[in-house]
Every structure is written in C-alpha cells, then in structure tokens.
C-alpha cells in the first residue's frame, strides 16, 4: 500500500516538465491505443507505456515528422492494433465499404417497393 503513496525516489525528471501540448498532440494521442490498458487511448491513460509513447510522439513532432509518419513508425513496431483509425488497405477494404454497400442495397429495396406500387396503380 505504502509503495503507491510514498513516492520513493524524489528525482528531478526534466522530461516530465510540461512542454506545450498542441491540438496536433492531442489528436495523435487520441488516435493511439494504450496497448497495455483495457480499451483506453494514450490520451486517456497514465500508464508507463502511455507516458513513454507521449514523449516519443512529442519528440517526433519536434523533429518535424508528419502525423502519418508517426503512425507508420508506431505501426511498424506494434502492428496496426495501435491506431484507432484503421488504414485503407486490402485487409480493411470491406470494413470501409460494406456499410455503404448496405446503404445502397437498402435504397434499391425501398425504391423497388415504391415502384411496384406505381405499377399496381397503373394497372
């Protein structure tokens, strides 16, 4: 119990001092899964892993890396599991298009029903 409360090492962690967090930071944090947590994003979590990832993302942004490059880097290390926005690729093709397919399919059915009625009326 005490080990949690009493902070044993009072060290100066210079990197913990707050840098400016921009909208871009928060957007990226929110799109990353905290892999050691249960269904939380890096932004929501305060785990060791989330803290480390935040530092790395900050560094990458300072280096001038783009959002996409940062995601690609993390995916290469941890797999697609780490990003909440699934990428457009062959495996995810159906994920992105199936909902629209159903939408069009539904429209066709409704259209057919209404048209049928018009024909009935004409008869």
């Amino acid at each position: 119990m005490k080990k949690i409360i009493l902070i044993i090492f009072f060290l100066t962690f210079s990197h913990l001092k707050s840098d400016e967090v921009t909208k871009l930071h928060i957007e990226i944090y929110k799109n990353l899964r905290c892999l050691v947590c249960q269904g939380q994003s890096i932004a929501d979590s305060n785990s060791e892993f989330a803290q480390t990832v935040k530092l790395v993302v900050k560094d990458k942004i300072n280096e001038g890396k783009s959002k996409k490059e940062i995601y690609e880097f993390l995916i290469s290390k941890y797999g697609e599991w780490i990003v909440y926005q699934p990428r457009f690729n062959r495996g995810n093709f159906l994920l992105w298009f199936l909902p629209y397919l159903i939408l069009i399919f539904g429209a066709i059915i409704i259209y057919a029903l209404i048209k049928k009625r018009k024909n009935n009326k004409a008869n």
Binding site: H15, E48, T52
Partner: peptide, 13 residues
C-alpha cells in the same frame, strides 16, 4: 532513462 528508446524496440513494459 526517459524510456524513449524502448519504443524503437517495440517494448510494451
């Protein structure tokens, strides 16, 4: 010391 390099190695914890 900051843990940042661990991400390069794909470390979870």
């Amino acid at each position: 010391s900051e843990g940042k390099v661990s991400i390069n190695f794909g470390v979870y914890g």
